[in-house]
Design a protein around this nucleic acid. Structure first.
Lengths: 342, 342
DNA sequence: GCCGGTACTGTGCACGATCACAGAAACCGG
DNA sequence: CCGGTTTCTGTGATCGTGCACAGTACCGGC
């Protein structure tokens, strides 16, 4: 006698509830979906029957019938470590979860580190399990995006996609303008030998911030010196390493614009170890205004990326696409946050 | 004229493929599921038809028919930041993903930070969208676990559950024995004033490691001094802070056993700032053997948790449960890794 | 008493797959 | 050429829902 009181394993169906409540399946179904056109008496007995049977709706059957799944994927097409380390990513993820929660839509995080994962998850997504996809990928010429769009899947990317022809909706911060403002801030503070540690230069975010840096230097009549620029990878350790490279090439730097706070944290550590004081010897400007900005001493002057607005906008656009509307790209402004490092 | 060549939006069904290939639905279905009893000629024309129509199986229909969903949830019932920071969590997650991939099963990561999220996701899970759940939660008297088990959902927890009556299968490292081995190692090195920074003491992992520490001290005839013990939260910053507390109370410590490498990293930083050298003044023993162990100088002596085996075991047990078998708890041994810090 | 309208209820079909089953075709040994 | 097995194929029935639709009951107004 191992099985419990109910010998059957089959979960209760809407039919069981209907029988228990003494009404028809249709009435139960109406009750479940808003409850319009259900008499108070029927409503009460259905409620009781649901409690008694422990009924939960079978989402496969519902989805098959309606064509919707009422869930959304958050797809990460790169190794998760890189993003999990970044406080901003957590803010973005949390924001998307919360905004979707208002519509009672669960968010499924899918991690695709390998090509094999990508294939498996692409198939999973296109086979109807989600209504739409929020995509995060720094190398955003991502074939996955094109593939999902081709399958007619609603999709919004975080960050400007690389290929312009792909017609992928996106939400991004204004990288170029943000970089301009930060470099101008450094110039206004009297700095003249300003270096930069960029993000990966095969991504739009990486190149746009570099472009802003170069523009402002040119406008100020300062020469562009490639020796003052080092490429980083948005990670803490990468920033530390890039700072060492940069200072060995150009010991006379008086400021560095670093394309992410996480890297800037590494930069500040490296400068301390090299005996340079921040900001007296060298000013450091970050980017993101992530938790890393205030976790370091001195606290970072940085460009705030409006991650709360970005997640809100991504969700809004995705729901619009799911509802059948077309959406385009959105670029949101950044904001200078002056603290102690510059 | 905004729509593309095919005016309809309806994705192709198995029926469309069958018609295109000149065979019946049954034959296409057999082809899709292993391909037994399908003649070579039929096979070829079905393959061609699938390519031509761009057919992908509708998983809702399949799941409705089979009762399976061929996907698994990885449920995190606490704020993600805490776990995402931990390199071990990434190893565990990656391991589960890979082991499931061998069975072609996608893993869906579900984050439940709030009670609201927990309700939503519990409903989502019990309504049939996944075949089983891998649960990670440090406060593992988790009501979610009990609820899912009550609904008959296969479930394996990472870490020993708090309530013994809950009958939840789990996989855990041998915390008590690991702690014993580390403290014995510190004693063997001649240390006598050994402090400890624990994990949260409302979790089994936290109390078991503390128990091991106390046992070995007692066996060595050393007194247990509560002033030498501080409670931490497994996070880097928490370790740093706990170390300061500990040293202000007991400046004559000659060793600390820290219940996680991430905290130990913070401890080493704090000790450096306080002018103590590691391991000469104070030896530091960690726990986990995570990436943090080698990211710090000196590299940490630590207890390795076999995360690759843990993930393998969790997946194996979950699949067994899905197949209808019963599984119990599994405790895996840890291993002392001697490096420079102790 | 008939009318139109509103509130409510039940029936049957559709969704897109799997699966059991029956029957056809092919093969094979005697 | 027969009976028996194996291989292959198509035809319903089925899974649990939502939804369109038909139908009932009640109500107020002329």
């Amino acid at each position: 006698m191992t099985t419990s009181a109910n010998g059957r394993r089959r979960p209760p169906t809407i039919h069981d509830v209907a029988r228990e409540a003494g009404v028809s399946r249709g009435t139960v179904s109406r009750f479940l979906n808003g409850g319009h056109y259900v008499s108070p008496a029927a409503r009460r007995s259905v409620e009781a029957a649901i409690r008694k049977t422990g009924y939960v709706v079978n989402r496969h059957a519902r989805s098959l019938s309606t064509g919707r799944s009422d869930s959304v994927a958050f797809l990460l097409t790169e190794p998760q470590e890189k993003f999990f380390e970044d406080p901003n990513f957590n803010v973005l993820l949390r924001g998307c979860t919360e905004h979707l929660a208002r519509h009672d839509i669960p968010l499924l995080l899918m991690l695709a580190a390998t090509d094999d994962d990508r294939r498996r998850l692409t198939r999973y997504i296109t086979s109807g399990h989600v209504d739409g996809v929020l995509l995060v990928s720094s190398h955003s010429g991502d074939p996955v995006a094109a593939e999902l769009r081709a399958a007619g899947m609603p999709l919004v990317a975080c960050g400007k996609p690389m290929g312009l022809g792909s017609k992928v909706s996106y939400v991004a911060a204004d990288d170029r303008d943000g970089a301009r403002e930060m470099v101008r801030h450094l110039l206004d503070a009297g700095r003249r030998r300003i270096g930069m540690i960029t993000g990966p230069l095969d991504t739009p975010g990486g190149t746009d911030r570099l472009a802003g840096y170069r523009e402002v230097l040119a406008e100020a009549g300062l020469p562009y010196d490639p020796a003052l620029v080092a490429e980083g990878d948005y990670r803490r350790a990468g920033g530390e390493e890039a700072a060492r490279r940069l200072l060995s090439r150009a010991p006379d730097l008086d400021a560095v614009f670093v394309a992410s706070d996480l890297m800037a944290q590494g930069v500040v550590n490296a400068l301390h170890q090299l005996g340079r004081s921040v900001p007296d010897d060298i000013a450091v400007g970050g980017f993101d205004d992530s938790a890393a900005a205030t976790a370091v001493t001195p606290a970072l002057t940085t460009m705030r990326q409006p991650y709360d607005r970005i997640s809100a906008e991504m969700v809004r656009m995705l729901l619009a696409q799911i509802a059948g509307e077309d959406t385009a790209g959105v670029i949101l402004p950044t904001e200078l946050v002056v603290r102690d490092s510059a």
